[in-house]
Design a protein around this nucleic acid. Sequence first.
DNA 1: GAGTGGTCTAGACCACTGA
DNA 2: CAGTGGTCTAGACCACTCG
Lengths: 255, 255
Amino acid sequence: MPMDRSEPAPRSSVADETPAFAPLYRQIKALMMRDLQAGVWRPGAAIPSEKDLALRFHVSQGTVRKAVNELAADNLLVRRQGKGTFVATHAEENVQFRFLRLRPDDGDAGRMQRSFIDCRRFAASAEVARWLGLKSGDLVLQVRRVLSFRGRPVVFDDIWLPGKLFKGLTGERLASYRGPLYGLFESEFGVRMIRAEERIRAVAAGAEAALHLGVAPGAPLLSVERLSMTYGDAPVELRRGLYDTTAHHYRNQLS
Amino acid sequence: MPMDRSEPAPRSSVADETPAFAPLYRQIKALMMRDLQAGVWRPGAAIPSEKDLALRFHVSQGTVRKAVNELAADNLLVRRQGKGTFVATHAEENVQFRFLRLRPDDGDAGRMQRSFIDCRRFAASAEVARWLGLKSGDLVLQVRRVLSFRGRPVVFDDIWLPGKLFKGLTGERLASYRGPLYGLFESEFGVRMIRAEERIRAVAAGAEAALHLGVAPGAPLLSVERLSMTYGDAPVELRRGLYDTTAHHYRNQLS
DNA sequence: GAGTGGTCTAGACCACTGA
DNA sequence: CAGTGGTCTAGACCACTCG
């Protein structure tokens, strides 16, 4: 059987963290990830069929299938029986905001409005630089906004982005874009959010947050700090959301 | 090939929610789930090898493999290469508390102490009955406790359990048991927590919570309401935790 | 070494989609 | 109808664990 691959099995040499012998399907997965990251396969578009991929990589269909399954489990690909396999995207998702876990206490969603407060750029503070993996003093973009459910403000977001990645981002651009923020990041700046970590605490509302959310200063708010990562776990967004949880809650599934 | 199964494919008749044609491996999965629920395979014990299961169910090894993989993904089974496949258990887990997402702000864990406040039984309020799927007035058990990290109280838990399932549970029994609460539920009462939903909000500390957590009344606390389910998504525990998040945070992974 | 789960293959057939 | 992903099989071989 033709066992020659375009890229031979990476038998790692000295002590490194990754296991020395990666199974074939993980090597295929890594190759496909490379194409995703490089934008060879664009968000929303179909990737080659399993049969084609099997031919291209000189492996059996079952092996590419395992690779694709893992990428789908990682939410990088979406399988659609009878149609094909597609690159996942934040742009045209049924669920408006994939990473937002806030839900109204009564199930019924009832669409959500955004309003942007400002969009400024300045030198990163030491802490923001640390989280985003920048040098202190690097250019950083700050976006602030409010989300409202049924006309009532519920979320006050403070977002920091590396200036280098979001060069042309302005307040007008934000205001005019339809759809999720991460959809804009993806289509306009080629930055795709893959995964995020959130740290949640309860805090007392400061003057500014109280104003924007229409609550009394000192009222308890949910503080949600989110660090979003793109390919290779590189951090590309830091966000601090303050949620008014009097009529909403943060929902989480444990298993 | 012998295509006779002990249980024929369930071709469902009239309109029901579940898909009419379940693939073979899902039928196998359902059969295995039955054995898990019935306690035929006990927590921590090894289940038969894939080869044995394939013979028993008259399917190929690849098919039982798919069933087992899904059960492992659901955290009902644990695979250990070279040793076998085991029934998951809360009792002997590395991670002390599998469902507790609270972490100290500095990573380092530093073990955790429990102290039980009381354990009472009485008639369920309408709301508790609703969450637990009981009739209002059914017997309910209430457990209250405090968790401390490094000597400082951090979590004040209020736990409700259906009286019917936890007949012999007493304060002494709770105090003397080593290991996670869910381990005790599993070994002593045969109640296995499979999955849970949490609703998180920010609240102001009441008098009692302030006392137990050593914070000022009115201080912001994280309120974590958890509904835990056993097999068949039957709710078996309602819990309301109040977390002091001045030096800890609730951590969540998004993807 | 025997027994377990993990990988890989090759091929048959099914279920779904859209032209 | 052709093309896609989804299921199922049978068998070979590998990697890990333990006596």
